[in-house]
């Protein structure tokens, strides 16, 4: 995605090349072209483009990819934090993101 970059050096994406079977699924599902093939195996070529959506890890049948994915909006994170600190934990409304 040209023209848009978010903070660098923060993503939790990890690829264990030793487990990769070269199926290319991570290349197929990544909307930011984070992966490329090197010697019939996947490699991370644009780490800072990762938005931690989790599509690659979920679709890696070999379990070679790990990423801490989840709600990535400020309102959602404030809500998550609020749920951990508020005194009354009765209702369980989903976050207001979307």
């Amino acid at each position: 995605m040209n023209g848009f970059d978010y903070l660098s050096g923060v993503t939790t994406l990890e690829l264990d090349v030793g487990l990769c079977n070269g199926c290319r699924m991570c290349l197929n599902v990544c909307p930011h072209q984070v992966f490329a093939m090197h010697d019939k195996q996947a490699a991370i070529v644009a780490l800072d483009k990762c938005m931690e959506c989790g599509a690659c890890a979920l679709n890696c049948a070999e379990g070679a990819i790990k990423v801490d994915s989840g709600v990535g909006c400020a309102a959602g994170l404030i809500y998550e934090w609020w749920r951990t600190v508020r005194p009354f934990k009765g209702s369980n409304k989903p976050s207001s993101c979307c």
Binding site: V10, T12, K49, D68, C73
Partner: peptide, 20 residues
């Protein structure tokens, strides 16, 4: 503006956490 991170298709959860 910080809240708009949730509407973009390129911000990461770790990035938003750090920025917050």
């Amino acid at each position: 503006a910080l809240n708009f991170t949730g509407s973009t298709p390129f911000t990461s959860r770790s990035g938003v956490k750090k920025e917050m």
